[in-house]
Nucleic acid binder design. Sequence first.
DNA 1: TCTAAATCAGATTATTTTGTCTGATTAAAG
DNA 2: CTTTAATCAGACAAAATAATCTGATTTAGA
Lengths: 142, 142
Amino acid sequence: MTVFFSKKCEYGLQAVLFMAARDEECVCPAEEISKKLNIPKEFISKILQSLTESGIIESKKGKFGGFKLAKHPSKIKLIDIVEAIDGLDSFNSCVLGFPNCSPDKPCPVHDQWGALRTKAYEMLSSETIDKFKEKTLNKIKI
Amino acid sequence: MTVFFSKKCEYGLQAVLFMAARDEECVCPAEEISKKLNIPKEFISKILQSLTESGIIESKKGKFGGFKLAKHPSKIKLIDIVEAIDGLDSFNSCVLGFPNCSPDKPCPVHDQWGALRTKAYEMLSSETIDKFKEKTLNKIKI
DNA sequence: TCTAAATCAGATTATTTTGTCTGATTAAAG
DNA sequence: CTTTAATCAGACAAAATAATCTGATTTAGA
């Protein structure tokens, strides 16, 4: 079905961008994220849990608990979120599924695809999420 | 898991490149493709069937039957195979999974991602598979 | 005409991904 | 100390994708 990020990763990216667009210190219950972004509550909870383990966000338990960014938005890159959820394998493995695809033994589209993938990686790792605050606010009503 | 093409699509691309690298007129039984490319026979058969329906390859039934390209390799583009198997939705839908992502209502990474995706599309639709013959031969022993 | 070797077709199974349910734990506030 | 509202945790269910099995049909050649 040709997808780039898994659903989990899409939701994780959405959620972190959402949190970055709000007041930094304010904790955000999973339920609120679920409603604002139309993601099943239990599912986003699981994703937020794993992002907590990765140190990208942190959780506050109990009443008035929730999630918030663990670092300043200018310290969080998109690729950090992708890595935490989907991993970086796809940036290293062959797009056609051939084994041992490498510069020595390139698959037919090795060079062309490699260049594109590198660009994608660079984009995801150059941009920090504070840059997206405005655009996120345009897209999601907080 | 961050993947670009589905397994089906990867296998379909591999198979078509394989056929293009052989003598054009020679029909290729599914079993041979399965063995050379290490793809489960019944699975690649199904994929080849759907590529036959799409008119990219054609099948010859019965003894000494098999599959071969329906057109000259210079007339088949990578994107044709992707379209036949995975469809082109991913080139039009939001990479972050936001609904109604468009230039009017762009998602946070709309511009950056759009540019990359366009490049990917251009690559897949500019290159015809005859260009890959040599590289395929290097990768797969026929 | 018969047999072997292939595609074709549909049902079934397995695995992965996505999503749901239930209950325990934690912490704030009356 | 009790209630309430949240995370945490693990089992469970559903859906999508990947793979397998079985048998029918087709066709070349003896």
